[in-house]
């Protein structure tokens, strides 16, 4: 059973094709993250699904209802049974938390425990119910916004970069709490974001968008390990694009050899190596110069210069930092995806 299906959805603004034949599906209770740089069309996609915008062509179904066909909206936002969490929450400034949460419930639908239940679901203190939005922290505002969206038990929750305004530590905990709440309510979610960490860690599957098209959809591990294009590869994580010669399911590159996942024949090609696929070792034929590094505490990404490749990324432990200017030897390992040259 799918909660959302879009097929061949297009939408242009002037000469810009914001959506260029988008096909997506979300299964019951699943979380799909749509990942892409700004301007790729991901927010347009969300707004068309929500019914804020119409399309030019294509179809959108929610559950077994077609809500948009031939690009035209057939069901208004009001009747789509969706929840919507915009950037920064957008709580109604003139209402307190309780009134914000119950905003979409008719008097008949309201029950005494609603607010307390939803606050608990989002792991918020019940005493917040009588506060006004400006008296809440950013993370609290965001959780209340989710509670408000979940109050009407939508089958699909649309989250538009909901955590982007939060600082890093808060982003993760808020994100997890929100996903737990979504799951507890049995809803599916569409999370639009440009942050690959958020997408990879929170979603069941990730769709990467580029210039109005979905270029790859799949589980986070697959998208990360086998990106469909170099663009996807570089967007879902750091790495180095290397020119290679493929023969016998081995890719030969200037910095070493990699296994190739499937038989793609032989000849010149491009491969994408993750930093953790390059190691500094005692003994190797390949020599590189340390140009600099990004220190993350537990580990670090080292920028290496190798003949023919100005920048190769390599991951090392936080306690194994080389010195800038050092010459080191490197070894490659693992599988890579091969792209045409």
């Amino acid at each position: 059973m799918t909660v959302l299906r879009t097929s061949s959805l297009t939408r242009s603004f002037g000469s810009v094709r914001a959506l260029d034949g988008v096909d997506l599906e979300i299964a019951d209770g699943a979380v799909l993250a749509v990942l892409g740089p700004s301007g790729c069309g991901k927010t347009t996609l969300l707004r068309v699904i929500a019914g804020f915008l119409s399309g030019d062509a294509g179809e959108v179904s929610l559950g077994d209802r077609v809500v948009l066909s031939d690009g035209r909206a057939r069901v208004s936002t009001k009747h789509r049974n969706i929840g919507y969490v915009p950037q920064e929450g957008a709580l109604f400034p003139h209402l307190d938390v309780a009134a914000n949460i119950t905003f979409g419930l008719s008097r008949r639908e309201r029950r005494a425990g609603d607010v307390a239940d939803l606050l608990a679901l989002l792991e918020l203190d019940p005493s917040l119910a009588s506060r006004y939005p400006h008296e809440l922290s950013g993370g609290q505002q965001q959780r209340v916004a989710v509670a408000r969206a979940l109050a009407r038990k939508p089958s699909l929750l649309l989250l538009d970069e909901p955590f982007s305004s939060l600082d890093a530590s808060l982003r993760e905990s808020t994100g997890r709490a929100v996903m737990r709440a979504v799951q507890a309510r049995g809803a599916a979610a569409l999370l639009v974001t440009h942050d690959q960490n958020e997408a990879l860690s929170l979603a069941d599957s990730v769709g990467v968008m580029q210039a109005g098209k979905v270029v790859q959809v799949g589980p986070p591990i697959e998208v990360y390990a086998h990106p469909a294009t170099p663009f996807v590869a570089s967007f879902v994580g750091a790495g180095t694009v290397l020119s290679a010669t493929v023969a016998d399911r081995v890719a030969h590159t200037p910095i070493g050899d990699f296994d190739v996942a499937e038989d793609v024949g032989s000849g010149p090609a491009q491969v994408f190596a993750r930093p953790e696929q390059v190691r500094i070792v005692e003994d190797s034929k390949v020599v590189a110069t340390v140009r600099g590094f990004d220190f993350h505490g537990h580990d670090a990404t080292v920028h290496l210069g190798v003949d023919g490749h100005p920048e190769v990324l390599c991951r090392v432990g936080g306690d194994e930092l080389p010195t800038i200017g050092d010459e080191v030897r490197i070894l490659t390992h693992g599988r890579v995806t091969v792209y045409p040259a």
Binding site: S76, T77, K78, A90, F92, H94, F103, A149, R152
Partner: peptide, 26 residues
């Protein structure tokens, strides 16, 4: 900011209700 009016739509309010409950108070 029209975001509040869009939200009201996802929360099941008609255009009139949105005007009365979201726009007017602001």
């Amino acid at each position: 900011d029209p975001v509040h009016e869009e939200l009201a739509g996802t929360l099941g309010l008609s255009r009139t209700q949105t005007f009365l409950r979201v726009v007017l108070p602001q």
